[in-house]
Design a protein around this nucleic acid. Structure first.
Lengths: 219, 219
DNA sequence: AGAAATCGGTTGAATTTTCAACAAAAGGAG
DNA sequence: CTCCTTTTGTTGAAAATTCAACCGATTTCT
């Protein structure tokens, strides 16, 4: 487990928890690590989840498929980020999205009940973890607000610009790689891929942005 | 304060807290009640918030205004519901939405710090409240997932249907009043009002729904 | 290295949405 | 009750998105 400490230290769920406590905690929590191939569905839409996941390597996505097979990407999930916690904490009988491995990845799985409910050993870290979970959920909420800000824009261009500006603001740079390919970006922005490609082309010509594959520069 | 107990008992934040503790708690938390006129901005976009709000009567909305003045309604906030908690818990320097009174309303305001951090009196309820706050935030997360499911639809009709079906599923009825007028519904679904009116008209003619003002029936 | 699959850009046509403007209906104030 | 404001429905034109199809380029796999 120790090799994952560098990731876990950055994970919101383990904030303010000392290294020396971590190993004991993980054992008490029954944490286990699993590996998934690209495209593997880690949690399936419509099913309940009792576990939360922490991405240790690779990346995943929260994905929704509708009636007609249209995909929408609700959020990207990178190294150190948690997924499934909202569903596990709210104890929903059917989760509204699937969590899909975006590339080969390792995930730490923890039964959420073990986190939230004091165990027989009367471990002392539960309160801290509940507090951390609360902060994590508050941050997730913020991300949804940002997503609404982006997708509420009516035109493809405004959505893309809102997304890129948000990215620039978060990273503090105006040159960055986004974690999506074209189709994924379209499915995140809720627009048509070909229209998105066309719009990116126009914006390049107008000198608004530079773009090469998934590398963008704001001008 | 006692006259608000019937509301507070239903509030997710006070779940599993006994009536006899409530009064003492509210005093310790420094809870105060304020009244706001219709359209009053309770929390303003761009500012930080330290307080959470609980709607005691009336209703409010979380509203975002963009560049061009386009409004989008992020969520409706009814009696017994909490607002601002995500921003206060995440300690953001600038909140991304405004909270606006949708009609005359009474709101209980509580400094979030008083909830999350143990006070000098060593009150025992903080842990329970942090737990409740966590559950509340998890439920809010779910609502965002549902909102994404609705607004990710590409057409006005599909968005409206998704919204109505969601409403029917939550209330368990296929006949209900929605909490929005036409313009508000359009701003929630992220579509044009006139187009929405036209679409509702079509769907009535096709026998898909009945609709009278804000009362809808699914057929 | 070669074949297959994926990805990204382009195009034109069809469909929708948006926009602005107007009129009818409903609701409130005096 | 009447006037004024707000809300809702309608319309037509303009603009944008979607859709399907195609092709070249890149990547992946054997």
């Amino acid at each position: 487990m120790k090799k994952y400490f560098s990731v876990l230290r950055e994970c919101a769920l383990f904030c303010d928890i000392a290294d020396e406590d971590l190993l004991r905690m993980l054992s008490c929590l029954g944490a286990r690590v699993e590996s998934f191939d690209k495209k593997y569905t880690i949690f399936a839409e419509g099913k309940p989840v009792r576990h939360i996941g922490i991405v240790l390597s690779g990346s995943a996505q929260a994905v929704q498929l509708d009636y007609y097979g249209n995909r929408s990407i609700v959020m990207g999930i990178g190294v150190g980020e948690v997924f499934g916690e909202a569903f596990a904490c709210a104890e929903v009988p059917a989760i509204p999205v699937s969590i899909v491995a975006n590339e080969p990845c390792e995930v730490m799985l923890i039964d959420c009940g073990h986190i939230l409910h004091t165990c027989a050993n009367h471990c002392s870290f539960h309160h801290q973890m509940i507090y951390n979970m609360m902060r994590d959920l508050a941050m997730k909420n913020l991300r949804f607000h940002h997503r609404v800000e982006i997708t509420s824009k009516r035109s493809t261009r405004d959505k893309l610009l809102a997304y890129l500006l948000m990215f620039a603001k978060e990273t503090g740079k105006d040159s960055f790689d986004i974690p999506f390919d074209r189709q994924e970006l379209a499915d995140f922005l809720e627009v048509d891929r070909s229209g998105l490609s066309a719009e990116i082309g126009k914006m390049k010509k107008e000198g608004l942005i530079e773009c090469n594959k998934n590398h963008f520069v704001l001008l």
